[in-house]
């Protein structure tokens, strides 16, 4: 029983650590599937984090926080679209600029508020609302309750958002059009799909979703206390996860929780090792850096294997990263 509880604890943390990744990944998949490679996930999340956190903490409402996080980050998406779609700026550079700007702005605002002693604190009520939600009643079922029904509301939202994104992309006409824009904007344009508008919409909504991940980092992973590195590379892991999930939000759910497990193991590996001293005792000897590195190693391998296999399914959208200029097609 003790062993089972250890496994459940670690798996549950995997979901808690995976949720912000899932937000980032779902957002980036929407963006990339419509043909934009936005490397600014880290910065977009940072802006959503600081905006959403300040709004949420001062208004004492989780909903307001989420709304503002979504809006702040979707502004980043809008800016990205304006630069890359309308002004046809290089996507790699624009994305990196977004990362530098976003992380910088988040630090600037956070540090300024901190030095002036005006950094908002989360009220007890809000902390409670964020931390221990779960589904009343169901969460008290032994094992199953802990494993399925005892998460904060973000975790459920992240999964729902990913499922909605999957249904939208693969089961609706609008989704098909959006994928067409990502694969071959010229052809999509010639059948009357508005390429620019499609990219604008997907970039903006995608970035907004990333913002929810940012708020998660601020409110849950960092429990509302300021540090200079709120997003801590999760945005880059999300970029990696998109490849790992081969551009499918459904696979992103599994991928996020697998990567979440790797993050959970960084701090909780001893729980597993102590519960199964004979079978898993060796886990204690693996350095933490290994778990930190693993998401990137796995993704690197996936990138390489994909390119060797030349798979037709689940590869980067053909036009991803390329700006569309009608007169050049």
């Amino acid at each position: 029983m003790e062993g089972l509880m250890a496994i459940v604890t670690v798996l549950a943390s995997a979901l808690r650590f995976g949720a912000p990744l899932l937000f980032g990944t779902t957002g980036e998949i929407l963006t990339e599937k419509s043909g934009s490679l936005n490397l600014g996930v880290e910065g977009t999340m940072a802006i959503g984090a600081i905006g959403g956190f300040i709004a949420g903490a001062t208004s004492n409402s989780l909903f307001v926080g989420m709304l503002v996080a979504f809006l702040c980050s979707s502004l980043c998406g809008l800016l990205f679209s304006f630069l890359t779609v309308t002004l046809k700026a290089n996507q790699n550079v624009t994305g990196l600029a977004m990362t530098i700007f976003g992380v910088g702005l988040c630090q600037l605002i956070g540090q300024t508020l901190k030095t002036k002693g005006k950094f908002p604190a989360m009220s007890e009520e809000l902390t409670h609302a964020v931390a221990s939600n779960g589904i009343p009643g169901l969460r008290n079922i032994p094992v199953l309750g802990e494993l399925l029904f005892n998460y904060n509301i973000f975790v459920y939202i992240s999964i729902i958002v990913a499922i909605i994104a999957w249904v939208f992309m693969f089961k609706t006409k609008a989704g098909l059009r959006m994928r067409a824009v990502g694969e071959n904007p010229g052809a999509a344009d010639s059948v009357g799909i508005n390429v620019d508008r499609t990219r604008y919409i997907n970039n903006t909504i995608g970035s907004g979703i990333m913002g929810l991940g940012g708020l998660y980092m601020a409110m849950i992973i960092n429990i509302g206390t300021w540090n200079d590195n709120w997003i801590g590379g999760y945005g880059w892991i999300a970029v990696a996860l998109v490849i790992f999930a081969s551009w499918s939000p459904a696979r992103a759910i599994g991928g996020s929780f697998l990567f979440g497990l790797l993050i959970a193991l960084q701090s909780q590996v001893s729980i597993l090792a102590n519960a199964f001293p004979t079978a898993l005792g060796w886990l204690n000897k693996i350095p933490v850096e290994f778990y930190k590195m693993l998401p990137f190693v796995i993704t690197a391998l996936v990138i390489i294997i994909n390119s060797i296999g030349k798979k037709k399914e689940g590869v980067q959208p053909t036009a991803c990263g390329v700006n569309y200029y009608r007169e050049e097609r």
């Binding site: 002004l87 530098i100 910088g104 630090q107 540090q111 030095t115």
Partner: peptide, 23 residues
């Protein structure tokens, strides 16, 4: 006492404007 992150913000802004003006 102004945060050194201002450098990043300025770099980001310069990039955005140059990318935009490049057009």
């Amino acid at each position: 006492g102004i945060s050194a992150a201002m450098a990043d913000v300025l770099q980001g802004l310069i990039l955005f404007t140059i990318l935009a003006f490049d057009f």
